[in-house]
Design a protein around this nucleic acid. Structure first.
Lengths: 350, 350
DNA sequence: TTGAAAGCGCTAACAC
DNA sequence: GTGTTAGCGCTTTCAA
């Protein structure tokens, strides 16, 4: 696959090289290398000379060269479906802090569109470019996952369990249960659930399935049978939620409560309800999952999950693995909790 | 500065090297290199043989090695203050699409906290690691900017004009004018403006100044004198907006309209107003700037700016510069437009 | 504890 | 057109 190479001439400033430092410090390049990376066998005085020289020349080792020689890149690849969504942005930020504090750089891969994803898996730009990979709730196909593992470097996921891969996530069924039980305890029996697109942009998000299944199960254990017509699936995001709610409104009879697969959908649903003049929680109660920063603003009852914490935990797992302290692939499940706000209440007597 | 190196042993799978491909194709490594990068002087038949061999071995050139040899990294550094905020996340996504389509990888630097920023400027991890840098509205000090330029590689900014640096941005004064004129035309004379923190996390955001100055000027040209007590500054984000609004509420007299430096502040302000039982737009009108995706949800009148477009434009500029088509540092100003929704109306007669 | 020297895997300049 | 040959700037044995 021929690649068009732009004719950029790297006429950059000459950075000081390791030999420059070596000369200035009066030692050999090897000693400079050892000193700078804190190796054992360097006398304190020598090390100090080297440090001084390096500082004087504002020396920084070329990552390319040191990577080539050592086989380590000091870079982590972070792969996300959508950077612009609240969940992913916050998870990335959480992981970033941990990784950057440990001296790692972060290469971001945003697969948001079908083209971007195809390009990614075709080029596999991670190959020989990162020490480890962190993927966020990717709804990848078998083949994609295989490609990722073929890189043969440490892999950690957030939000999705993959066989043999360390993972940080919430228990989706439990999250849904928190919400459903809350509604049931308030007396609701007619409960709908709205979800995003099944295979949004071609991603096979597990959460979609897990939360819907969890919903059916939670209802069942409350003695309620789920009704397919009360489980519409629309596009994702706020607009999707608005659509799904509109669909429910146009149905034969309106449920007394609606659970949204995630907060952005719930927020869209609230918009539709407001515009339609349906009282919340008077006529319909609404619950979301996430505790998006906007949930508090619109007073949405929701099941909170710690997002940047999950990113940080995943980052730490990666560092542990890279440090050789690699336990068996762990599955860290962080707790969720119900946050009761103003969009839920007991159903009207009728 | 000695660096602690984790003892990770790169016991990875052996990737095929260029010599493997050369051997399989029955040519020399040099020819493989030329063929794969679409150079001129390669016969079609030879190129095909190489391509086949490369595919068969799933060969991908080591970025480290080719970077070291060529002086190019095929990587762009993107530096943002806060990835989790709507504006930055969308701008990054816009730039990412353009850059990744052109075959560049994106190294993300998130300076969100003071520590992260200090670490960044201390280590200067961009050194010899990227071909160009894109910075987003960073409120950097003189010294920081100098450090960035010392990298001596192409630099493009979004949202902030730096002398001699290409830039994509909106005209902040104009954006504010759109909002102020709208309010004035509706008959408002008592107009407040709420802003985020002046030097949030130590960032000296120019927007903060430009929008406030623009506000004073716009009022002046409408024959209204700005009143300092009607220009409170709080923390940033939704919470900050809520606080600033609370401050206004506790003042001697409530203005009839409030302009927020950006939508997240406006949204926070709306929350405070709702909780305080102040009618919007009955008693107070509210306008924001951005057209955040939540603006439509809360029915906020705002001045829209194209965000991912700015990211994309900046990405394209970077590519042009790298391609040698480097015009003088351009200053691209994208247009803003008023989006009238439900939070503004004529003031009550009184 | 330190220096010398051999790569790491590729690109590019120069022959042929 | 294609092969050969120096490096690119480090790290890392291996000796000393």
């Amino acid at each position: 696959m021929p690649d068009e190479v732009p004719p950029f001439t790297p006429a950059r400033a000459r950075h000081a090289g390791i030999v420059d430092v070596a000369r200035l410090a009066g030692v050999s390049p090897g000693t400079v290398s050892r000193s700078l990376r804190g190796h054992q066998n360097v006398s304190p005085i020598t090390r100090q000379k080297v440090l001084d020289a390096a500082r004087e020349l504002s020396y920084r080792a070329s990552p390319q060269a040191s990577g080539l020689a050592s086989g380590r890149t000091r870079t982590i690849g972070v792969v996300v479906p959508y950077v612009t969504r609240w969940f992913y942005a916050n998870a990335v930020a959480g992981a970033y802090d941990v990784l950057s504090a440990a001296g790692y750089d972060v290469l971001l891969y945003h697969l948001g569109s079908a083209e971007a994803r195809d390009r990614f898996f075709e080029r596999m730009p991670l190959t020989r470019r990162v020490d480890a990979v962190l993927t966020l709730t990717l709804g990848l196909t078998e083949e994609h996952v295989r490609a990722l593992r073929a890189l043969d470097i440490p892999l950690v996921t957030i939000g999705r369990r993959l066989p043999g891969v360390a993972c940080v996530r919430i228990d989706d069924a439990e999250a849904v249960r928190h919400a459903v039980y809350h509604l049931v305890h308030q007396g609701h029996r007619e409960i709908a659930m709205i979800s995003g697109e099944k295979d949004e942009d071609g991603f096979d998000f597990r959460t979609w399935h897990d939360r819907r299944e969890g919903f059916v199960d939670a209802l069942a254990s409350a003695g309620i049978e789920a009704q397919p017509e009360l489980m519409p699936s629309s596009r994702g995001g706020i607009e999707g939620g608005a659509q799904a709610m509109a669909q429910l409104l146009s149905g034969p009879r309106l449920p007394t409560a609606v659970l949204a697969e995630y907060d952005e959908l719930a927020i869209g649903a609230l918009r539709t309800l407001r515009r339609a003049g349906v009282a919340v929680p008077g006529r319909v109660s609404v619950v979301g999952i996430d505790d998006h920063e906007m949930a508090a603003v619109v007073d949405l009852t929701t099941v909170a999950q710690p997002v940047s914490d999950q990113g940080a935990a995943a980052g730490r797992m990666l560092l542990d693995i890279l440090a050789g302290a690699a336990p068996d692939p762990v599955d860290v499940v962080v707790p969720t909790r119900l946050v009761i706000r103003g969009t839920t209440a007991a159903p009207r007597r009728g």
